[in-house]
Simulated scan of single mutants.
Amino acid sequence: MSEGRKSAPKAPAGVDTEKPSAARIYDWYLGGSQNWAVDREFGKRAVEVFPHARELARQNRDFLGRLVQAALDAGIRQFLDLGSGVPTVGNVHEIVRDNLPAGERASVVYVDYEPVAVAHSTVLLEQDGATDWAGLVQADLRHVDAVLKHRTTRQLLDFGQPVCLLLIGVLHFIGGDDRPEEIVARYRGRLAPGSWLAVSHFTDENLPPEDAAAVHELAEAYQRTSNPLWVRRRAEIESWFGGWPMVEPGLVPPADWRADRPLNRAERRARPFGWCGAAERPR
């Protein structure tokens, strides 16, 4: 994102530009342009509270890229991205398009409930000429039937074949009262053998007191956005995989999942604040 931009992008119909949105804040962390003054101001305050926010967002996005590549290498050709957010660099369909073996077909379904994410994702798929194999469902991922029974989902995905289900940086916006373990279990139950379930999540585990305090101050700040933030620990996150065998290297910080280069100092400092991993449904 250009810090010198003088005006925000045009807001699609139904978009609330008066209250910060997690999807647009994340876009700002990543240097994107689909955010408004309220999101940028929140993001700047968040970085003051938690200086690793932008780097951790980049590590999470890089994990997504390596994960999709690994799933393709494992032969998976279907992807369901829940809480896909505002399009930015390294979208799932772009990674698939750029790495799919010649002559093969794949399918991608994005799911998000936020109008700005839906509007810009729709435009991006049209610009990329990908609408015959990638589509968008506007729905809240907590409404599992609405997602799985949506016409676009049924047209593009065959749940009799392996699917890579992506829950990347989204479950920490699902509170305990919504029973995230049950939500994940319902999706997991629809996946065929050979499918992957991938998750990344914010954590305060094994941190020095000062860092843990910063995490909780950030979570408190998010309570004033349209997407409150919950912090969880490894054991709870691991339970969401339902005992499926973990794909190597297991449940690790995002920077460590099949890392392809050494980390610099800033990257090492941001490394401990998340857990991520993927598991495969036994064949």
Rank of each mutant, 00 (worst) to 15 (best):
R97F: 02
G90M: 12
L56A: 09
A102M: 10
R40G: 05
D145G: 04
P9W: 03
V144Y: 03
D178W: 05
R77P: 00
P101A: 09
S84P: 03
V147P: 08
R271G: 03
L100A: 13
R45M: 13
P180R: 04
V118S: 01
A71H: 10
D211Y: 00
R258A: 09
L64I: 08
V199D: 12
K149V: 01
P193E: 07
I76V: 15
N99W: 03
W36D: 05
E181V: 07
V184S: 10
P272W: 01
K44R: 14
I76P: 02
S121L: 08
E205N: 01
G90A: 11
L166P: 03
P9G: 00
D98T: 02
S200N: 00
F63D: 02
V15Q: 08
L148F: 05
G75I: 03
A71W: 01
K10E: 14
N35D: 09
L156P: 07
V184K: 02
G65I: 03
L67M: 15
A57R: 02
D128M: 08
A8V: 12
E280Q: 15
E210R: 12
K44G: 08
S2R: 14
L141W: 00
S33E: 14
L165R: 13
E220M: 13
N99H: 14
F202E: 04
S33K: 15
E210P: 07
N99P: 06
G160I: 03
V38D: 01
R271E: 02
R190V: 05
I168G: 11
R154V: 12
R283K: 13
D16K: 01
A11F: 07
R190G: 04
R224S: 15
A214I: 02
I25E: 03
A259R: 15
F202V: 15
D39Q: 04
D260E: 15
V231E: 09
A270H: 10
P193N: 07
H150Q: 03
E181T: 06
G90T: 11
V163P: 02
N91E: 12
V184G: 08
Y222H: 06
R265D: 11
E181P: 02
A235M: 08
V89Q: 14
L218K: 13
R190T: 07
A214Y: 04
W230N: 03
A13V: 15
K149R: 11
G160Q: 14
V147Q: 10
H201A: 03
F173V: 01
L30I: 08
R188H: 05
Y222K: 03
G32W: 07
K19S: 13
Q78M: 12
G135W: 12
W240A: 02
E55R: 13
A23I: 01
A134F: 04
R24C: 00
V199N: 06
R281Q: 11
R151N: 13
A11V: 08
K6C: 05
A46M: 13
E126P: 00
Y222M: 06
C164L: 06
S239R: 14
A146Y: 11
Q127R: 07
H52R: 12
V215R: 10
A259V: 13
R97E: 14
W36Q: 04
G194S: 10
L167T: 05
R232W: 08
R66L: 10
V49T: 15
G75N: 05
C164Y: 01
R154P: 06
Q59C: 04
G243S: 10
D16Y: 08
D81T: 13
H201S: 09
A213L: 14
W28M: 09
A134N: 00
P180A: 05
